[in-house]
Design a binder for these strands. Structure first.
Length: 229
DNA sequence: GCGACAG
DNA sequence: ATCTTGTCGC
């Protein structure tokens, strides 16, 4: 699929934050977003060694699933090197170049992107899922495994139970229990989708495990690619 | 000021 | 994120 170039590219954390502020007005958070997507893509990145600094080997994977059957439609994985250090809030600049390259290698254009991380549940309301959404023009949302910004009460302990994730008095996401009695995931809208729809898709994509199949497939693919250099 | 902090 | 042993439960 076509993805525009990543310009400008920041040289410092301050420049990176400024880019987020520039792009944030381009977000479409009106919703509701795709109710019955044909295909959904999961994205994830794995690192070799200490994945916190710069210069580490990485593998970025995109796996496109049939949204109804969860069968794999297409896979794409690329390897590279980290060009930006891990800084909370600037996480996107670490994974974006490799993820964009992997997306470009796809022969199909997914109807929806599920990111490993956050969307608007972000200090500047512009997490990885937002950035990928603005860049690709596709509907996106994020599914995080741990809390980042905001706070929430623990949701009920049954699959499907939720509680709002609130930051600065705003609901920026939702803690969503995808399995009975198992730690919830954190869902936030990225672009061209609302929170309700994002949570519905997350639940549909996670029929058997805590994490959505999109994330699990992309995680496995990126990890495997890293293991065989 | 200090701690916490997606992956 | 990654580095890691054993352990509990279905």
């Amino acid at each position: 699929m076509e993805v525009p170039d990543l310009h400008p590219w920041p040289a410092t954390p301050a420049e990176a934050a400024a880019i987020q502020d520039e792009l944030r007005p381009l977000l479409d958070l009106a919703g509701p977003g795709p109710q019955d997507p044909g295909t959904v893509a999961g994205l994830d990145v794995s690192y070799a060694g200490d994945g916190a600094g710069t210069g580490a080997r990485l593998a970025a994977a995109v796996v496109v699933l049939d949204a109804r059957t969860l069968d794999v439609v297409e896979e794409s994985v690329v390897t590279g090197t980290t060009a930006f250090p891990y800084v909370p809030g600037l996480f996107a600049f670490r994974e974006l170049p490799a993820l964009v390259e992997a997306l470009r290698a796809l022969t199909v254009t997914p109807d929806l992107l599920v990111c490993d991380g956050y969307g608007v549940a972000h200090p500047r309301r512009f997490g990885l899922a937002c950035h990928l959404g603005v860049l690709t023009g596709l509907p996106t949302f994020g599914v995080g495994k741990t809390a980042f910004v905001g706070s929430c009460e623990p949701p009920g302990d049954r699959r499907g139970d939720t509680s709002p994730l609130v930051h600065d008095g705003e609901t920026v996401g939702r803690a969503l229990r995808t399995r009975d009695g198992v730690k919830p995931v954190f869902v936030s809208a990225g672009h061209r989708i609302d929170l309700d729809t994002a949570c519905r898709h997350t639940l549909a994509l996670a029929p058997a495990y805590r994490l959505p199949e999109t994330t699990r497939r992309a995680d496995r693919l990126s990890r495997d690619a890293l293991a065989r250099p």
